[in-house]
Amino acid sequence: MKQILHLRVNGQPFEVLAPVHHTLLEVLREEMDLTGTKHGCELGECGACTVLVNDVPTLSCLTLPVEVQNAEIATVEGMADGSTMHPLQTAFAENGAAQCGYCTPGILMSARALLDRTLEPTEDDVRQALSGNLCRCTGYTKIIDAVLQAGRDLKLRRAIHPT
């Protein structure tokens, strides 16, 4: 059975017709063509499908869209500001933090939630915040470097352009 869902994704309202039991991950990828969000297990064990729901990192493979109808959902596609990449994205690109890149969208979302809380996370904070995201390529080292660098960049940017 299909139903009409009202979702807000990356600041835009959407009306989507999807089977009721499909997960948010499936709806994003199959119904909305937002394939940036990845599936690594669909069991809540890898973090590849992480999106933000009202700024909280959430596993979209364990979320039913009906539960988040009134929430703000953010995916990796909404991270850049037009063609300007988010400092986290730039830092990932510059530091070689994405090898195959498959884990990257999920990790970016978790990292973004961390930097929303603090721009000066310790290495330990980063490890804790990203502990639900698996990466099989990088050994995590360069991801940690990238997140710390992005924190510094954002801080500098806010100092120059206070909002």
């Binding site: 990828r29 995916t75 994205q89 990932f92």
Partner: peptide, 21 residues
Amino acid sequence: NPKIEAHQKASGETRYAGDIK
């Protein structure tokens, strides 16, 4: 140097086999 595809990977643009429609 950054990898030539680094920006696609950091933005979710990279299309893997499972993303093909």
